[in-house]
Design a protein around this nucleic acid. Structure first.
Length: 420
RNA sequence: GUGGAUGUAGCUCAGCUGGUAGAGCAUUCGGUUGUGGUCCGAAAUGUCGCGGGUUCGAGCCCCGUCAUUCACCCCA
C-alpha cells in the first residue's frame, strides 16, 4: 500500500463541517474593519528574515526560537511570517502608502507560522485577522481600533471574554521605570532562567505564572506609575472614549506582550473558556517601528486576532449555528429510465436560483427518493423540491418546507420569485 | 525546548490475569408505488500508530519511534 501522509505536526486545518464555523468567524472578525474603511492588504506568507529580526525584536522568543527560517535557492534568508505587523509596515513603506492621506488603514487575514510546541489553541500554522492604522497619534484612533476588534467578537456572539488594557508609555516613561524595575529585580533572588529573561526584557517577569514569582512581583514597580504627562493624558483619553462606547475593560498594568515594538496603548482580549492559551486577540501602538524599518517616523496602532482561538471560544460557548453551511433549497431530480430531462432541468433551475444568490444543492447519483430526501434532511436545507416526470409535464413543483413538512405548489418559472 | 496523559472501524470508545477484535453513532441498502426526521432489519468498513523484543501465542507485557493532547515556556 502507498504511504499514508499526515499533515505536518501542529498545524491547524479546517474541513467540513467545522470549516463553516471557521469561515463564519473569519468573516465576523474582518467585517467591522471593512465597515470602518480599512482596506485589504494581501501580503506574502514569507519575507526577508531581517524584516522580522528588526521588526519583531531580537530579544523576543518569537525571533530567537520560533521562526521558520530557511535559505531559498538564491541563497536568501527567508522566514515564514510569524506575525502580521512587520509585513504590513514593509508593504506600506515599499509602496508609499503613507505618502497620501493619513492614517493608512488596512486589514489582512491569513496564515502565520511559529515553530512552537503545539497545544490547545497554539499551532505551528495558525490564522489571524488584523488591522493597522498608521500615521495618527490621536487617542481616538486607539479607541476605534479597539472597538473594531470588540465589534468582531460581538458579531461572532462571544460573551466570556474581557479586554485588558494598559499603557507602556513613551521612551522616557519606560527608561525611568526600567531603572527602578531592574533595581527591584536585582534585590530579589531569581533562578538562572528567570534572571536571564529579566536581562532580556524585565517586563517579562510580570508574565510569570508561578505563584512565588507572582507574589514577589506584587511589590514590583509598575510602568503605569511612571508614565510621562503626555502618555498619561493620551491613555486617559483612550479610556474615556472606551467608556463612552460602553466597552468594558480591565486595567492590566502587568500586561506583557511578546513584541518589542509596542509603546503606549497596549491591549489584549482574553477568553475564559480556553485553557492556557486564553488570548484571542491583542495589539497596541508602536511609535518607532516604521522608522526602524526605514520608513517615515510615523506612529501606528493595530491588532491581530486569533481566528483559530476565536473559533475554539465560540465552540466552547456553544454559540455557533449548526446549519452554517446549509442550503436554502435541495433539488431532487428523478429521471425516467430513458431520459435525463429531470437532471437537466434541475441543473438549470439551480443555476437560475444561484444567480439570485439562493444557495441550492442538487441530489446527485442514482439513489432512491427516500435516500435523496434523507440527504436533503442531513444537509439542513430549508426547502426541498422533487423534479420528475409529473413536474416536467405540468411545469408545477411541490416545494416542501423541511422543518414543518408543509408543501406549497409553485410554478417552476416562478421559483426565482419564491426565493426572493 | 521540559514534563504528564493518550494512540483499537469515518467519529466516540469497550476489549477480563496475554489465547489473533466488538458496541453506539455515521455510511449504504431494505421494511413493495414519488417524499426526510422516529422505529426495525441487513451490509460495508480495522496492516489494533509504526518498528523491534519477550512468548507456543501480544491490541494487551518491555524498549524505541512517530503522532495526538494537556501543562510549563511563549503567544493569536
Amino acid at each position: 500500500m502507498a504511504k499514508q501522509f499526515q499533515a505536518p505536526k501542529g498545524v491547524s486545518e479546517y474541513f467540513p463541517p467545522r470549516s463553516a464555523g471557521f469561515e463564519f468567524v473569519r468573516e465576523c472578525l474582518v467585517e467591522p474593519a471593512k465597515l470602518a474603511g480599512y482596506q485589504l492588504l494581501e501580503l506574502p506568507a514569507f519575507e526577508d528574515t531581517e524584516l522580522f529580526n528588526r521588526g519583531v525584536g531580537e530579544s523576543t522568543d518569537i525571533v530567537t526560537k520560533e521562526m521558520y527560517t530557511f535559505e531559498d535557492r538564491g541563497g536568501r534568508s527567508i522566514t515564514l511570517r510569524p506575525e502580521g505587523t512587520a509585513g504590513v509596515m514593509r508593504a506600506v513603506i515599499e509602496h508609499g502608502l503613507d505618502r497620501g492621506q493619513l492614517p493608512v488603514k488596512v486589514w489582512y487575514a491569513g496564515a502565520f507560522f511559529r515553530a512552537e510546541r503545539p497545544q490547545k489553541g497554539r499551532y505551528r500554522q495558525f490564522y489571524q485577522a488584523g488591522i493597522e492604522a498608521i500615521g495618527l497619534t490621536d487617542p481616538l484612533i486607539d479607541a476605534e481600533v479597539i472597538s473594531i476588534a470588540d465589534a468582531g467578537f460581538k458579531r461572532v456572539g462571544l460573551k466570556n471574554y474581557k479586554l485588558l488594557i494598559t499603557s507602556l508609555g513613551d521612551a522616557e516613561s519606560r527608561a525611568a521605570h526600567k531603572i527602578d524595575l531592574m533595581k527591584f529585580l536585582s534585590s530579589q533572588k531569581l533562578d538562572e532562567a528567570t534572571a536571564a529573561r529579566a536581562q532580556l526584557n524585565p517586563l517579562r517577569i510580570f508574565d510569570d505564572k508561578r505563584d512565588e514569582i507572582i507574589d514577589m512581583m506584587a511589590k514590583a514597580p509598575l510602568l503605569i506609575d511612571y508614565l510621562s504627562d503626555e502618555s498619561k493624558e493620551h491613555f486617559n483619553s483612550v479610556r474615556q472614549y472606551l467608556d463612552k462606547l460602553n466597552i468594558k475593560y480591565e486595567l492590566a498594568p502587568k500586561l506583557v506582550r511578546g513584541f518589542d515594538y509596542y509603546t503606549g496603548t497596549t491591549f489584549e482580549f482574553a477568553h475564559s473558556d480556553l485553557g492556557a492559551q486564553s488570548a484571542i486577540g491583542g495589539g497596541g501602538r508602536y511609535d518607532r517601528l516604521m522608522n526602524e524599518l526605514g520608513g517615515q517616523d510615523l506612529s501606528g496602532i493595530g491588532y491581530g486576532l486569533g481566528i483559530d482561538r476565536v473559533l475554539l471560544a465560540a465552540e466552547a460557548e456553544g454559540i455557533l449555528k449548526a446549519d452554517l453551511a446549509a442550503p436554502d433549497l435541495f433539488l431532487i431530480p428523478l429521471d425516467s429510465s430513458n431520459s435525463n430531462d429531470a437532471s437537466s432541468l434541475a441543473l438549470k433551475v439551480a443555476n437560475d436560483l444561484r444567480k439570485q444568490g439562493v444557495k441550492v444543492e442538487i441530489a446527485f447519483g442514482d439513489r432512491a427518493l427516500k435516500g435523496a430526501m434523507k440527504a436533503a434532511d442531513k444537509s439542513g436545507a430549508r426547502y426541498a423540491i422533487v423534479l420528475g416526470e409529473t413536474e416536467l409535464n405540468s411545469g408545477l413543483v411541490e416545494i416542501k418546507a423541511m422543518e414543518s413538512g408543509k408543501v406549497e405548489q409553485v410554478r417552476i418559472a416562478n421559483l426565482v420569485k419564491f426565493f426572493n
